[in-house]
């Protein structure tokens, strides 16, 4: 369950003067703890993924990635991300705009509701959609009559992922836009610009790095989401399997090398995401 991660951890560079630094032994001890911890729980598993993936040679590795089911899973995952990210970006901007520029009753309730997916377990998120759209669900009979498939189909996966990733962009932009205020937008209006031009030329450039950051987190989550998607997907190979689900199936069938091969692909995606994220953080800092 990913929590809210603030955009910047602002650690002002500490002036290392004698009076404020710890004794050498303490420093050594603290650094050692961090290194051991990181290697044990982050670096080692990551290496293990790649070791296991190439366990049976490079041919098996590429064969498992090129397998039609794997390719279908990769394709589905990317399609879902492609749908989710723009939707969330639009929703996030709209919600942040609403919260930061207007005062209305129930604003706090709205912010709390936006946070709800962070608080609810993904499995429950998935079940909610089954309850709503499943055959025995609330809207199930009506959907069946009209031959619309949501559960155990791509729309269900998109909905579940959308629910889980909903807060990412909004959560990123709300504090940012609240801090920035609306003086520049007001200035733009007095200079004769309309709402759309003001958004395009003034607001968007101000929030672009925050927006991109939210988009990246949202993207990472939509690619990696397992719980909610698992409930609604139905695990139909080549049709409704996303990458995480595909990995699970392979693993359960004792095809460890194939499972880890796909897993390694996801890890690479994650690492790329992290690099881009760090670049953006660095860029935001230099822009300040």
């Amino acid at each position: 369950m990913a929590g809210y991660i603030p955009m910047q951890q602002t650690n002002p560079p500490l002036e290392s003067s004698r009076s404020t630094t710890e004794p050498r032994l303490v420093r050594f001890f603290l650094i050692a703890i961090v290194i051991v911890f990181l290697s044990l729980f982050l670096v080692l598993p990551l290496i293990a993924i790649f070791v296991k993936a190439f366990d049976k040679g490079i041919d098996v590795y590429f064969a498992s990635i090129r397998h039609p089911d794997a390719l279908a899973a990769i394709k589905l995952t990317l399609i879902v991300a492609l749908i989710i990210v723009p939707l969330n970006a639009i929703f996030g901007i709209a919600a942040a705009w609403l919260v930061s520029k207007f005062d209305f009753k129930g604003k706090n309730i709205l912010i709390t509701i936006i946070d709800l997916p962070f608080a609810v377990s993904p499995v429950i998120a998935g079940l909610v959609f089954v309850l709503l759209f499943g055959t025995h669900g609330f809207l199930g009979p009506w959907l069946f009559e009209h031959d619309i498939k949501i559960i155990f189909a791509v729309p269900g996966i998109v909905l579940a992922t959308l629910f889980v990733t909903l807060p990412f962009v909004a959560r990123e932009l709300i504090p940012l836009m609240q801090a920035q205020g609306s003086a520049e937008e007001e200035a733009s209006f007095t200079l004769g610009a309309n709402g759309w031009k003001t958004f395009l030329f003034v607001t968007l450039p101000k929030i672009k790095w925050g927006l991109l950051y939210g988009v990246i987190l949202c993207n990472a989550r939509s690619i990696g989401e397992f719980g909610a998607v698992s409930v609604v997907s139905g695990h139909i190979r080549g049709l409704t399997n996303t990458m995480p689900l595909h990995i699970e199936i392979l693993y359960n069938e004792y095809q460890f090398s194939a499972a880890f091969a796909v897993a390694s692909l996801m890890s690479i995606l994650a690492i790329v995401t992290l690099v881009v994220k760090n670049f953006i953080e660095w860029k935001t800092k230099t822009n300040k």
Binding site: A183, E184, E186, S188, T190, A193, N194, F201, P205, N287
Partner: peptide, 28 residues
């Protein structure tokens, strides 16, 4: 506001941070 043709100078200037001085003045 946009049709009123008023020049407004804000207390904390409200300059567009991401634009150069030239672009700020040219904006209107």
């Amino acid at each position: 506001t946009k049709e009123r043709k008023v020049g407004f100078v804000f207390q904390h200037y409200a300059l567009f941070r991401h634009m150069s001085v030239f672009d700020n003045v040219a904006y209107g």
